[in-house]
């Protein structure tokens, strides 16, 4: 891409848009996009429906976003489905969520596989997770483990601090000397260490919080906060977010453009 082109031109040409050019601050398609799927409860409340119907409506959005991300050339997509703090919700809602997630996983497993999407589940360590659901997660990971298309990471029973604590424990168990710990070696002890840093986080419903989500990986992420509630979020909204991202000026604390996940040591 020639310097001087506007961001709008870059948008029209996705192949060149995904490449960095010397001196051009406009960004390509983010490599790693994460979504905090917020607003299901409010969506239901606005319609005088039970909260559970909001969760059910979220399924359509999830599938739509996966498809949009894949088509746009996003390599890594992460979805925040259930946090370690969500266990404090009413028991009936948690039970419903567990059943719903299981149904969704089973329903879409063959399609995800056929689309070449590699599925992973981040977290999933709490013994309260039903056995059948845990096995479906494991089965889906087994089934799609060799796929080379987009990697979909579903954060389920996930907490960012918990992951960092787990990495610290793992380091101590491995007997690594304090002096030899740096960011890179620390990150190697996080779950799924091959996951690159998050480039763009989309948090729907206008809320502006991190909520303990992939804390290590979002260090230099760009955040967008569309007002739309998650069940109403669709592919065009997703592409709009990508567009917003392209117009951001990412400097990673310096002045030169860098690609997120590149070495900053």
């Amino acid at each position: 891409m020639i310097a001087g082109h506007t961001a709008g031109d870059a948008f029209a040409d996705p192949t060149s848009a995904s490449r960095f050019a010397d001196g051009d601050r406009s960004l390509g398609v983010p490599r790693h996009v994460a979504c905090v799927m917020d607003g299901n409860g409010r969506w239901a409340a606005q319609r005088s429906l039970p909260r559970t119907s909001g969760h059910r409506a979220a399924e359509t959005t999830v599938i739509d976003v996966i498809e949009a991300a894949r088509a746009a050339g996003v390599e890594w997509l992460s979805l925040y489905a259930f946090s370690t703090e969500n266990w404090s919700r009413p028991g009936a809602e948690v039970d419903y969520l567990m059943r719903l997630v299981r149904a969704v996983v089973r329903k879409h497993a063959p399609l995800l596989h056929v689309r070449g999407i590699r599925c992973r589940f981040l977290g999933v360590s709490d013994p309260r997770i039903p056995r059948g659901l845990a096995r479906d997660f494991a089965d889906l990971m087994t089934l799609t483990g060799d796929n080379r298309g987009m990697t979909l990471t579903v954060a389920f029973d996930h907490g960012g601090r918990g992951d960092i604590v787990a990495a610290a424990r793992s380091l101590i168990r491995a007997g690594v000397a304090a002096e030899s710990v740096d960011e890179r070696s620390f990150a190697a002890h996080l779950p799924f260490p091959d996951t690159p840093d998050v480039d763009l986080v989309i948090r729907t419903s206008g809320e502006q919080r991190i909520s303990n989500f992939m804390l290590w990986q979002v260090a230099y992420a760009e955040w967008v906060f569309p007002a739309v509630l998650w069940p109403d979020f669709r592919a065009p909204h997703f592409l709009e977010c990508l567009h917003t991202y392209r117009q951001r000026d990412r400097r990673f604390g310096g002045v030169l453009p860098e690609r997120n996940g590149d070495s900053r040591s």
Binding site: V105, R106, A109, P110, H113, R135, D136, A138, D139, L140, T142, L143, G145, D146
Partner: peptide, 10 residues
């Protein structure tokens, strides 16, 4: 193993 996972899922 993959086939088994798929069969269990469907």
């Amino acid at each position: 193993r993959r086939a088994g996972a798929l069969i269990r899922l469907i």
